[in-house]
C-alpha cells in the first residue's frame, strides 16, 4: 500500500465521517439513515484489497467511536470486520455488477446488525440502530452504486502515483 493510497484513504474516511455527521444523519429520511462511512470502508476493501479494508475500517470505526457516546472500539470492530470481509469476498471485476451490489448490501446489513447487537450488549442505544436497520440497508443499496465506482476510480488513479 503506497503512501498516496494511505493518505487518500485517510482523507476519504475523514470526509465521509464529516459528511455523515453533518449532512446525512440530519436528513429527515423516513425509515432510517444510509451509512456513508460503512459504504466507503466496504468500497475500499472491494477495490484496494483485504488489508486496506481492514485498516481503513479500523481507523474509520475508531473515529466514529471517538465522536459518539458509546465505548471506544465498538464501531472499530464492526467496520474492520466489514472492510476485511469486503476485501475477501469481493474480487474486483470478476463478478457481475448486480452480484457485487448484492454482496455489498449484504455485508452492510450484517455489519449494522453486529453494530446494533454490540451496542445493545453494552447497554447503549442499540435498539435505535436496529429499528432503522431495514431502511438504512435500503438507502445503502441506493447509495452504493454511487460510492463504489468513485472509490474504485480514485484507487486506480492513486495506484499509479508512486
Amino acid at each position: 500500500m503506497t503512501a498516496a493510497r494511505t493518505a487518500g484513504a485517510l482523507l476519504a474516511v475523514c470526509v465521509a465521517v464529516l459528511l455523515q455527521a453533518t449532512v446525512i444523519s440530519r436528513l429527515p429520511l423516513p425509515g432510517g439513515t444510509p451509512s456513508l462511512v460503512l459504504l466507503l470502508v466496504i468500497a475500499i476493501g472491494f477495490s484496494a484489497g483485504t488489508t486496506a479494508g481492514l485498516f481503513a475500517g479500523f481507523v474509520a470505526g475508531a473515529t466514529v467511536d471517538l465522536m459518539s457516546d458509546h465505548p471506544l472500539g465498538v464501531a472499530a470492530i464492526c467496520l474492520a470486520l466489514g472492510g476485511f470481509v469486503a476485501g475477501t469476498l469481493l474480487d474486483n471485476g470478476t463478478r457481475g455488477v448486480a452480484r457485487s451490489l448484492l454482496l455489498v448490501v449484504t455485508i452492510a446489513g450484517v455489519v449494522q446488525l453486529l453494530y446494533a447487537a454490540l451496542l445493545a450488549l453494552l447497554g447503549a442505544r442499540g435498539g435505535s440502530v436496529l429499528h432503522g436497520l431495514a431502511g438504512a440497508v435500503g438507502y445503502d443499496a441506493l447509495l452504493a452504486p454511487l460510492v463504489l465506482p468513485v472509490v474504485a476510480a480514485v484507487e486506480r488513479r492513486l495506484r499509479s502515483v508512486r
Binding site: 488489508t51 475508531a62 474492520a80 475477501t88 474480487d91
Partner: peptide, 28 residues
C-alpha cells in the same frame, strides 16, 4: 474470492483483539 493471507488473518486478529481491549477499558 481472495483467500486472505496468513499475515492478513493475523492483522485482523490483532486489530480485533485491540478493539476488544479498547472497548473493555473504555466501558469500565
Amino acid at each position: 474470492m481472495r483467500r486472505p493471507t496468513r499475515r492478513q488473518r493475523l492483522a485482523l486478529a490483532a486489530l480485533l483483539a485491540l478493539a476488544v481491549v479498547l472497548v473493555t477499558v473504555d466501558y469500565q
